[in-house]
Nucleic acid binder design. Structure first.
Length: 244
DNA sequence: CTGGGGACGGGGCCC
DNA sequence: AGGGCCCCGTCCCCA
């Protein structure tokens, strides 16, 4: 997530506990991205963070089913299927457009405001006697609060448009992160190597590569992986055949 | 085939 | 109440 360059005031906010991201035996974390993490935030420099190692032994029932059923519709995303549009999963038609770098058909150079459309859609939300249900007009999603629905609707209206390529995003910080792909700005640097990233999540994932013991562990062979997807591949391709 | 990077989305918390 | 921001997670692509 590009929600990063929100780097606005990291020096003030001490919230991010990136220390957890760091690998266990590193103590040079205070070098964190200059504009990034507040320097004092190295509390867990050693932390491999309790409980951060995922054991796939629990995944067969918790993850794998969902993965296969929901997010991995066989092979390369079948985004053409409108049915996938509604799933809470991030993939949507718009997203596909973006990845294929086809600018959405809306006027670039302007930040579109969709106040009225949202209002309309909100109004379309039925209210049950017992609990208010705010239904999205574009998909089957349902929310219990208007705020949540409004936020969701943005994923359909995509009001934040990149003035460079015209790609649209649901939230301003997503747009900012996207803009970095144009500017080449990489405010998040790895304290262990010289690599820098435009996206904080990518830095987080990268940090896993420096860790001796990675976050996701195979319950059978104890091998660890930096990503869940790698662990899943591992389990489904042999080692943990009994589990996959 | 595996590992890793790039780009991105959504939920939730905080101000 | 709404926006800003963070975390977690996913998908695609490439070496």
């Amino acid at each position: 997530m590009p929600r990063s360059f929100l780097v606005k005031n990291y020096f003030v906010k001490q919230k991010p506990n990136y220390s957890e991201l760091e690998c266990q035996n590193d103590t040079s974390l205070d070098r964190y991205p200059v504009a990034e993490l507040s320097s004092g935030d190295t509390t867990a420099a050693t932390c491999f963070s309790a409980g951060l190692v995922w054991d796939l032994s629990v995944l067969p029932t918790l993850y794998l089913p969902t993965q296969t059923e929901v997010s991995v519709p066989s092979g390369p995303l079948d985004l053409s299927s409108p049915s996938s549009f509604s799933s809470s999963a991030s993939s949507s038609g718009e997203e596909d457009e973006g990845r294929s770098s086809d600018p959405p058909a809306r006027s670039p150079f302007t930040r579109i405001t969709h106040q009225s459309p949202e209002e309309e859609e909100e109004r379309g939300a039925p209210v049950t006697a017992n609990r208010p249900a705010f239904l999205c007009k574009h998909c089957p999603k349902e929310y219990t609060s208007l705020g949540a629905l409004k936020m969701h609707i943005r994923s359909h209206t995509l009001p934040c448009v990149c003035t460079t390529c015209g790609k649209a995003f649901s939230r301003p910080w997503l747009l900012r992160g996207h803009i970095r792909t144009h500017t080449g700005e990489r405010p998040f640097s790895c304290p262990h190597c010289n690599r820098a990233f435009a996206d904080r999540s990518n830095l987080r994932a990268h940090l896993q590569t420096h860790a001796e013991v990675k976050k996701y562990q195979c319950g059978v062979c104890s091998r660890t992986f930096s990503r869940m997807s790698l662990l899943q591949k591992h389990s489904s391709s042999g080692c943990c055949s009994t589990m996959a």
